[in-house]
Design a protein around this nucleic acid. Structure first.
Length: 913
RNA sequence: GGGUGCGUAGCUCAGUUGGUUAGAGCGCACGGUUCACAUCCGUGAGGUCAGAGGUUCAAGUCCUCUCGCGCCCACCA
């Protein structure tokens, strides 16, 4: 599937462009071609001379999706954002590497395959471990490429020749090396502790895999019978745990129970004797003020039990049924036992009462069943020694977060971190590299032979039997190594030297702790370096009503459907421009339509330009064109100056990861400046009879548009590449837009005077159009006009043609002068900039009363503005403290607005008279 | 309980370090068969920037408090 095949030629055939952008006609072909040409590989980029081999490479490790997974909108956002960054930096001349891959996703994958087998009535236990794991590999072989194909569809320019899988040989080796390294340092240990138990998966899960949810339960109050005949009232939310109680605890200063401390209580139904103890942990205010202590099934009680040397009693089987410690309840499900025990207690007169109680209950992230705290022997990673350097690295700015506020969450979590349970009672995953000798002595080793050697040395004899630990590692263990394991670590590969640490790690904020924090810790511990310099966290994609998209809600949108309806570029542009880093976004059809329309708009601008250039068009060198600045028309200089501005601005925003804002600025420029104004302004020359002027217009159109396409390429790779392929090549153009260069900056192209002059024309044109609309002048009709230019005679007279075209004036009945006589007949008046007035004699159309009203409202606005500005400028505080530039801007505005007021007043006077 | 984000036009959202008259898309109203585009073009209406204080010459933007919604973290049985 991933292949380099240079023999493929570009799928873009020169010639006429279709009337509309048809995404599916190009997407697959372009993607295949890019990949076939090797454009996604930094080696090829260097070979082509399109990137600077000495520049720091730009590297992103793609968050590996689950092999079982199907692309959802979250992946689409990830891909859109990462591909945008990769394409941008590639265009900027840095070798760009985006490493793709997939995650074996322990529980998720095992469950999927188990479900499939279940349909055939087979359980994994029927198959046995080896056979089952083989079935999972088969499954992976059949469906595992699917998500990669979907990423290709999204236009993801990953280097597929470097694609990795967390369970492949190299990465598995990295996992073992990491385990051994941590184990060797004493950072991995095994022990019997109270852990979170998932009774459905029958495996331990880590703290962050437990999701707390408020549940409407009950507070059960009952009597703890004492041997002396009295009783202590106790409340609980889980009556079945009574069967595992080891003590009743009260506050040492609680007068109510002071006499009871040291006495013996009897566990209901079982009659087991337990002590009444005193501990300040007990909250006298809550419930009855007395606490039943269950060290085997409650985290707090566990600590209390350790402190007081209480017995740790487990009452559950791994599947959630009661065990023999539960006496008559053995064999029942825990919830069944809860009801039965309570009923029995009631019959025995031990019940005081029961009331509704809403409280948070932990559910397993994977199976959504209620998690039971349970005693179990598991492997753990000692986290604090790993967290300290990670915190330091972020504090020192060696890793930066976008948006920065996530640093706080990061610190908070790491500063309060608890040890990480890494073993899982599953079959699919990295098996724990530990073998046990006959007396349970563990031997951590790379493989069985090494373990056996160690065991023989340990026992001092040859005939030692060892067995490997049955468990596998938490899937996040291997993910934590991803940024360097994908580059060949623990080998000292060239890739590792060249592409590690990565530049950016981009992902959703929901896996900050699961993944990002652990990568930073493991990266520092294993390689001594931070694994990446920037963490970019995107928000979550929600549906149109703001709900999180999920399969169970049935509101998950399949990106492939969206691509089919709107095109990949539209989907990507919508995801990028609709989002701000770290903030959730809603995906709506309206926005997708807007993006689709934008792609089509670009296509049509391209089509227009392509046809306008004609067959004989030869591009001039851009620098040469710009070199003759003063020979260019006002509109030419204007668009080039605006282009320069958006170039600098967009590049700056992208460097600072303001992806959405950069996209919006480019959209605004491409549509509302280049297409709406410049193309229209160029038309008179294109269709005119001055060949030199026409050629200049073509050159500017060509270059301005190609540069715009380049800047938009990271946002909408397909349509821009397709258009680019239809346009003539200029010297220095490479084989494709994807490996082109971001437009270079030329400070001289910024021209404030030109921009101001053109803006005046825009104001005037808008004013005239407005008047035309108000007086309902037929859109096609050319109308006479007299324009008083005041101080702007030079540019307005020179560009009269623009006004004629854009405002549909009658060239034969147009007077432009510094101070012409106002026409005698009834006319509408348009006041644009400082002292610029257009009179539009609209014979028989101008209603004097209406015109007066129109001017009156304009005057009112202008006078209000004058008053405001006068006030601001009269404020000594402002004039003396605000920066000079700001003050000057207000002064200029005042002068201009005053000129406006004067012109309007003059016109009012003539109307009145 | 602690933390954090959000509240800006009818709807969905931008607004980068405080600095013109707060923007866009959609929707709405009016008008358009100009040889790129009706997935289009032109014009327009529409906002006490949740509320109240404060800092500042200047606040949607900074500070405090209040209200509403969301998320994360947390061992109250």
């Amino acid at each position: 599937m991933s292949s380099i095949d240079r023999s493929l030629s570009s799928p873009i055939k020169p010639g006429e462009m279709d009337k509309a952008w048809v995404p599916y006609a190009f997407e697959k072909a372009l993607s295949d071609w890019w990949e076939g040409q090797g454009f996604f590989r930094p080696e090829t980029q260097i070979e082509l001379g399109q990137v600077d081999p000495d520049a720091t490479p730009f590297v992103i490790p793609m968050p590996p999706p689950n092999v079982t997974g199907q692309l959802h909108t979250g992946h689409a956002l990830t891909a859109a954002a990462e591909d945008l960054m990769i394409r941008f930096h590639r265009l900027r001349g840095r070798p760009a590497l985006w490493i793709p891959g997939s995650d074996h996703a322990g529980i998720a994958t095992q469950s999927v395959v188990e479900r499939e087998l279940g349909k055939q009535g087979i359980s994994r236990h029927d198959l046995g471990r080896d056979e089952f794991v083989e079935r999972v590999w088969d499954w992976k072989a059949e469906f595992g490429d699917r998500i990669a194909e979907q990423h290709r569809r999204l236009g993801a320019s990953c280097d597929w020749t470097r694609e990795r899988f967390t369970l492949d040989e190299g990465l598995s080796r990295a996992v073992v090396e990491c385990f051994l390294a941590l184990h060797g340092k004493g950072l991995i240990y095994r022990g019997n502790y109270l852990v979170n138990w998932d009774c459905e998966l029958q495996s331990v899960i880590s703290d962050i895999e437990v999701e707390f949810e408020d549940v409407e339960g009950a507070l059960y109050e009952f009597k703890y019978q004492l041997d002396d005949g009295g009783y202590i009232p106790v409340v609980t939310t889980r009556p079945e745990t009574i069967l595992g109680d080891s003590a009743v605890a009260v506050h040492p200063e609680d007068a109510r129970y002071a006499d009871s401390v040291g006495k013996t209580a009897r566990v209901p139904i079982l009659g087991r004797a337990i002590p009444v103890i005193a501990d300040p942990y007990v909250d006298r205010e809550f419930g009855s003020g007395a606490l039943k202590v269950t060290p085997g099934h409650d985290p707090n009680d566990y600590l209390l039990g350790k402190k007081h040397g209480l017995e740790e009693i487990s009452i559950l089987h791994p599947d959630g049924r009661m065990n023999d410690n539960a006496g008559p309840y053995a064999g029942m499900d825990r919830f069944e036992a809860r009801a039965k025990l309570w009923a029995d207690m009631e019959a025995a007169g031990l019940v005081i009462g029961k009331k509704m109680h809403v409280h948070p209950v932990g559910h397993s992230q994977r199976s959504h069943t209620i998690v039971e705290p349970m005693l179990s022997t598991q492997w753990f990673v000692k986290m604090e020694p790993l967290a300290v350097p990670a915190i330091a690295a972020v504090r020192q700015g060696r890793v930066e977060f976008v948006p920065p506020r996530f640093e706080k969450e990061f610190y908070h979590w790491l500063e309060n971190i608890r040890d990480w349970v890494i073993s899982r009672q599953l079959w699919w995953g990295h098996r724990i590299p530990v073998w046990y000798g006959p007396d349970e002595t563990p031997f951590a080793a790379r493989d069985e032979a090494e373990a056996l050697a160690a065991a023989r040395a340990h026992y001092g004899r040859e005939d030692v039997e060892i067995v490997q630990d049955e468990d596998v590692l938490d899937t996040w263990f291997s993910s934590a190594l991803w940024p360097f394991s994908t580059l060949g670590w623990p080998e000292k590969t060239e890739d590792l030297a060249r592409y590690y640490p990565a530049s950016v790690l981009e992902t959703g904020y929901d896996i900050l702790f699961f993944w990002v924090a652990r990568m930073i810790m493991m990266g520092l511990e294993m390689t001594g370096e931070v694994p990446f310099h920037t963490v970019y966290l995107h928000g979550l994609v929600r549906d149109a009503t703001g709900r999180k998209m999920s399969k169970s809600l049935g509101n998950a949108v399949d990106p492939e459907d969206l691509i089919a309806d709107y095109g990949t570029d539209a989907l990507r542009f919508t995801l990028i421009t609709g989002s701000t880093p770290g903030v959730d976004m809603k995906l709506t059809d309206e926005r997708l339509e807007g993006s689709r329309n934008f792609a089509n708009k670009l296509w049509n601008v391209g089509r227009f330009i392509q046809s306008s250039l004609g067959a004989g068009f030869t591009p001039r060198a851009f620098d040469d064109l710009v070199g003759g600045w003063d020979d260019l028309a006002l509109a030419d200089r204007w668009i080039l100056s605006r282009l320069e501005r958006v170039n600098v601005h967009a590049a700056d925003l992208l460097e600072r990861y303001q992806l959405g804002e950069a996209g919006r600025q480019l959209y605004e420029f491409a549509w509302h400046e280049l297409a709406d104004w410049y193309v229209e302004a160029a038309k008179p020359r294109l269709y005119g009879d001055d060949p030199a002027a026409a050629d200049t217009a073509r050159q500017v159109l060509y270059h301005a548009f190609k540069q715009t396409l380049t800047m938009l390429h990271p946002f909408m790779p397909y349509v821009t590449e397709a258009i680019w392929g239809h346009l003539p090549r200029a010297d220095g153009d490479g084989p494709a837009l994807i490996v082109a260069r971001w437009p270079s900056k030329t400070a001289g192209r910024r021209d404030e005077a030109t921009e101001t002059a053109f803006e005046l024309i825009q104001d005037l044109v808008r004013g005239i159009r407005n008047a035309r609309a108000e007086y309902e002048v037929e859109p096609g009709r050319h109308i006479p006009a007299t324009i008083a230019t005041g101080a702007h005679a030079e540019s307005l007279v020179a560009d009269a043609e623009l006004l004629v075209t854009l405002a549909r004036l009658d060239a034969g009945a147009l007077t432009i002068a510094a101070d012409p006589d106002a026409p005698a007949e009834a006319h509408a008046t348009v006041v644009a900039g400082e002292g610029v007035v257009a009179w539009l004699p609209l014979a028989g159309m101008v209603d004097l009363a209406k015109e007066r009203q129109r001017l009156e409202s304009e005057l009112e606005k202008a006078r209000g503005e004058v008053a405001r500005l006068t006030g601001v400028l009269a404020n000594d505080g402002f004039v003396s403290r605000a920066p000079e530039a700001v003050v000057q801007r207000e002064r200029d505005r005042l002068a201009e607005t005053e000129g406006r007021v004067a012109a309007l007043e003059e016109r009012m006077a003539t109307l009145a008279g």
